Computed example of a mutant assay.
Amino acid sequence: MIEAFPLPDATPEELGLDPARLDLMCRRIEADIAAGKHPGAQVAVARHGKLALFRSFGDARKGSAATPGTLWLLYSNTKVITAAALWALAEDGAIRLTDAIAEHLPGFEAHGKGQISFIELLTHQAGFPSAEVPASAWEDPVRIREVVCGFALECAPGSRVRYHPAAAHWVAAAVIRAVTGEDHRAYIRRRIIAPLGLGDELFVGLPAEQHVRAADMHDPDGSVRMPEGTPAHRAAGIPGGGGYGTARAMAAFYQALAQGGVLAGKRILSPRMIDYAVRNYTGDRVDEYNEIAMHRGLGPHLRGETAASRGLGAIAHPRTFGHGGVGSSYCWADPVSGVSFAFLSNTRQDNAFHGPRMDTVSTLAHTAITS
C-alpha cells in the first residue's frame, strides 16, 4: 500500500513564494538539459510543511522520461541522512556525540584513533580522509568493521578540516550495527525514513524491486557511470553516497529538519538536537578538499558569512544548511524562512560547471522568498 505523501500541495503564492522566480529557476534547469549538461533532473521546493513546486525534466534513462516516481542517486546527500541516524542514537541515549567512537565500537582505537569523537567524525576532522571500504565488504558487516577499525591516520584528529568522501560514514554504519544490532540500512529506514512517511520515495539501500525506478547516473560524455549503475551498488546503501530518492522526498526530509525534527505531525528528533547538529563547528577554517570554509555542522554544512559559498546559494541566510551530491545535486533548508529545496540530476559533472550551476539555481530559489 502506497502511503500519502506527508507534504500536501500548495501554490507558491499561498506559501509566500514568487512563482515567476521559481519558473525562472526551472527554465535554467531546462536550459542545462537542452545544452546537454545532463539528460534529466528533478526539483522540489517546500515551505511551512507544504509543497510549492515539484517538477521532473528530461530523461531518467535512455528513452525513458523522468517521472515523479523516478529515484535519483543522492551521492553525498546521503551523508546527512546517515548523520541523522547518529543524532537519533544520541537522542535515544545510546551514544553521546561527544563520546569517543571507540567507546561504542571496540577495536576502532587501533592506529591512534582512540580519542576521535563523533563530532570530529561528522565534521570531517577525523584524520583519515582518503580511507575507503572496498566493494567486496559492502554486504559483510564483519569485514566492514575490520576495515574501518583498521583505518590509518593521515593527520592528527582535529588538526585539519578535510572532507572525508567515503570513510567517515562507513564508520557511522559500523557504529549503528554495534550499538543496535541492526544493519544501518534497516535502522535508518526504521528510525528516520519510515516515521516521516517517506518510505516509498527515500532509500538507503535500494530494494531489488525498486531498481526499475532508478535513474542512470552518467559521466559528462553521456556514458553510464559504473559501478553506480550496478545492482550491487544500488543495494549496498553506501552510507556516505549511495542513497536514492525523489526531490520531493529530500525537500520533505529537510522540511523535518527545518521544523525542529517533525513532519506532518510525526517527530523523529527534538528541536534541541537539530539545533545542536546544525551549529557551525569549524568556524571559518578552510576545508582543504573544497578549498573554502564550509562551516561544518554534524552532517550538513552551513552558509555562514564568508564571501564564498558552496551549493546553498550565495544570498542564502547564514543559518541555511544542507549538502550536495558530487557534480549532480544539492539539498538544503533555511530554518529562518522555513523553505527547503532539493535539486537532483543524473550526470556527475565537473565542479567548474556544477558549482556555478548550483549557486545560480539555489540563489533563484532564495529570491522567490517574498515574506
Results as ranks from 00 to 15, higher is better:
residue 6 P to E: 10
residue 16 G to N: 08
residue 19 P to N: 12
residue 22 L to V: 05
residue 23 D to K: 14
residue 30 E to Q: 01
residue 34 A to N: 09
residue 34 A to S: 14
residue 42 Q to H: 15
residue 42 Q to G: 05
residue 43 V to G: 01
residue 44 A to C: 15
residue 45 V to W: 03
residue 45 V to C: 10
residue 46 A to I: 03
residue 49 G to H: 09
residue 50 K to N: 13
residue 58 G to Y: 02
residue 59 D to M: 13
residue 68 P to Y: 02
residue 70 T to E: 03
residue 70 T to V: 05
residue 81 I to E: 03
residue 85 A to C: 09
residue 86 L to I: 12
residue 90 A to H: 12
residue 98 T to G: 13
residue 101 I to N: 00
residue 107 G to L: 06
residue 109 E to H: 06
residue 115 Q to Y: 04
residue 118 F to Y: 06
residue 120 E to W: 00
residue 120 E to N: 12
residue 124 H to G: 01
residue 125 Q to K: 08
residue 126 A to M: 02
residue 128 F to A: 08
residue 131 A to P: 00
residue 136 S to C: 07
residue 138 W to T: 07
residue 140 D to V: 09
residue 151 F to C: 10
residue 164 H to C: 03
residue 169 H to T: 08
residue 170 W to K: 02
residue 172 A to V: 00
residue 173 A to K: 05
residue 173 A to R: 04
residue 176 I to G: 00
residue 178 A to Q: 13
residue 179 V to A: 09
residue 185 R to L: 05
residue 185 R to Q: 06
residue 187 Y to I: 10
residue 190 R to A: 12
residue 196 L to M: 11
residue 198 L to A: 13
residue 201 E to Q: 15
residue 202 L to S: 06
residue 202 L to Y: 08
residue 202 L to V: 06
residue 207 P to M: 07
residue 208 A to N: 13
residue 210 Q to Y: 00
residue 212 V to M: 07
residue 215 A to G: 07
residue 221 D to C: 04
residue 225 R to Y: 10
residue 226 M to K: 14
residue 227 P to V: 06
residue 229 G to L: 03
residue 235 A to L: 04
residue 241 G to T: 15
residue 248 R to M: 14
residue 260 G to R: 10
residue 261 G to W: 00
residue 262 V to M: 09
residue 263 L to M: 09
residue 267 R to I: 04
residue 267 R to M: 03
residue 272 R to A: 09
residue 292 I to L: 11
residue 292 I to E: 15
residue 302 L to A: 10
residue 303 R to G: 09
residue 304 G to M: 11
residue 306 T to C: 13
residue 311 G to Q: 05
residue 315 I to N: 08
residue 321 F to P: 02
residue 326 V to R: 11
residue 326 V to L: 15
residue 330 Y to Q: 15
residue 332 W to V: 05
residue 334 D to K: 06
residue 334 D to I: 06
residue 340 S to W: 00
residue 343 F to L: 10
residue 345 S to D: 05
residue 345 S to A: 15
residue 353 F to D: 11
residue 361 V to P: 02
residue 369 I to W: 00
